[in-house]
Design a protein around this nucleic acid. Sequence first.
DNA 1: CCTATCATGTAATCCGTTACATGATTAT
DNA 2: ATAATCATGTAACGGATTACATGATAGG
Lengths: 190, 190
Amino acid sequence: MTKERLNPISYVIMGALSSMGPATPYDLKQRIGETIAYFWSFSHAQFYEEPPRLVEMGLLTEQKEAFGRRRRVFAITELGQQAVRDWYDEPTTARREIRDLGILKLFFSDHAEPHQIEELIRTQTAVHTAILDELTAKRERYGEREDIGNRPITIELGLLFGQAMVEFWHSLRVREDGRVHRVAKESTNE
Amino acid sequence: MTKERLNPISYVIMGALSSMGPATPYDLKQRIGETIAYFWSFSHAQFYEEPPRLVEMGLLTEQKEAFGRRRRVFAITELGQQAVRDWYDEPTTARREIRDLGILKLFFSDHAEPHQIEELIRTQTAVHTAILDELTAKRERYGEREDIGNRPITIELGLLFGQAMVEFWHSLRVREDGRVHRVAKESTNE
DNA sequence: CCTATCATGTAATCCGTTACATGATTAT
DNA sequence: ATAATCATGTAACGGATTACATGATAGG
């Protein structure tokens, strides 16, 4: 990442520093891991590699702790704030990506055995139910707090998405010939 | 891509060849562009680079057209079919990713001006409505056909997801202080 | 015949992950 | 004191996009 281009990870880091204050790479990883990683995850190395680059560009400052681990604490500069504002004004045109191996397998399930498809449906229902449960717990913890800006609103979106996914997978039925159909919502109880 | 590892793009190509028959790289790009690119998109170069690699591994065969453009037509081998079956049996554990810049901006909207957030909401509602319309048209064209395997079922999922997104963005209201809230479904008419 | 578009491919670059390596702190 | 875990960083690799370059075909 040598060129002076700003990517999603750049804005994630600047956004996290701007909304939640100065942080070390590890802090950033934690903050993102508990929040937007529910949608979009980043490897821990990016939180160590990207901030120094943003410092070079004048968008962040770096301060080493005086004692102990002498960790590198990063903070956003006024120039960085401006970069985030400019980003906000850019039209948001890039299409969303939904990268889900379960969907891919379902799409290409023509030559799979019915029992394989049924197994896929079971595990995918379970996976998405588990995410729903996590987010529901999160909402109970953070949903009422007034001091954390607009961040909890994305929990709502995660819940809506999760409900749609569970509803979808749960509504699927496999015929003997391997053909998959959706059944009406009323009859999704087994 | 030198190592003999199979990635999502490998299975996308093998799956498309298996479900829809032999194809050139360009054909593959088209097939995917009209279907699973609604969820997960791939650059055109991948459809030219990956098949030769799969041929080396014995998973595809390549045949050059005798006349005209002498295009490279790829087909899946029995070994390739087996690789797809093995993949189907692997547990599908990787978490889904929802990479959406609109969500990212909303998450980090604390320091944005109310009018900027309102503009974001407007454009995101429009973007997701447009995708819904495309998929609705697609369902009308393909939904009833019995000769295209289980592929139309993912259109249903795209519609469910799109409805959730439109419902979400449409339900948001921005307070004067920049705080964003959801309103109940009944009152989402302006 | 000319032009626009369709189609094909490669090379360079960029970006993200994985693997590696190690130090610091906490709990027992 | 020791083990477990928390935390930090870098290097190498792999994978995906972008840019470049060009040929083929169809429509006027």
